[in-house]
Design a protein around this nucleic acid. Structure first.
Length: 138
DNA sequence: CCCTGATTCGC
DNA sequence: GCGAATCAGG
């Protein structure tokens, strides 16, 4: 997978959008890893985004943080989903408020623990399911 | 264990 | 130039 202008444009756009490297990697394609995205981002000269790791200093809590900004973008959309995010749909597809659960999913599962229970909920007792359909022969 | 970006290093 | 491996931190 070469870095064509299209790929680079996507990278820059998504990077600017605020998506994480891993999410951008998934957007660009399965053959791209977050390492590739980060590495390319650096070589492109993209601004080092405030990594949650480096960001520290002044532990001074910000009480006015939640009130400062307005409540925008509260929904987890399809593009926000990552492999480890719960893909449980909330609302109806097509609706403006249609979104996904988005909580950390169980490893190897498409949903979080709660929604795994929903999705893989024990089937209602199937009385017509005979436990012993065929007796062993010989 | 899950995640984040930064840097190194061989190709 | 590329990105996996590694590093450093939450």
């Amino acid at each position: 997978m070469a870095w064509t202008d299209e790929r680079i444009e996507q990278l820059k756009k998504l990077w600017d959008e605020g998506l994480s490297a891993s999410q951008i990697a998934k957007e660009l394609g399965e053959g791209v890893t977050r390492n590739a995205v980060i590495g390319k981002a650096h070589r492109l000269g993209l601004k080092s985004r405030p990594s949650p790791v480096k960001s520290d200093k002044t532990k001074a809590k910000a009480p006015a943080k939640k009130a400062a900004k307005k409540e925008a973008k509260k929904f987890v959309t399809l593009l926000d989903l990552t492999d480890r995010m719960c893909k449980w749909p909330i609302g109806h597809p097509g609706d403006p408020d249609f979104h996904f659960c988005g909580r950390p999913a169980e490893p190897g599962m498409p949903y979080c623990a709660t929604h795994c229970a929903e999705a893989y909920q024990a089937q209602p007792p199937r009385r017509d399911r005979r436990q012993t359909p065929r007796p062993p022969i010989g």
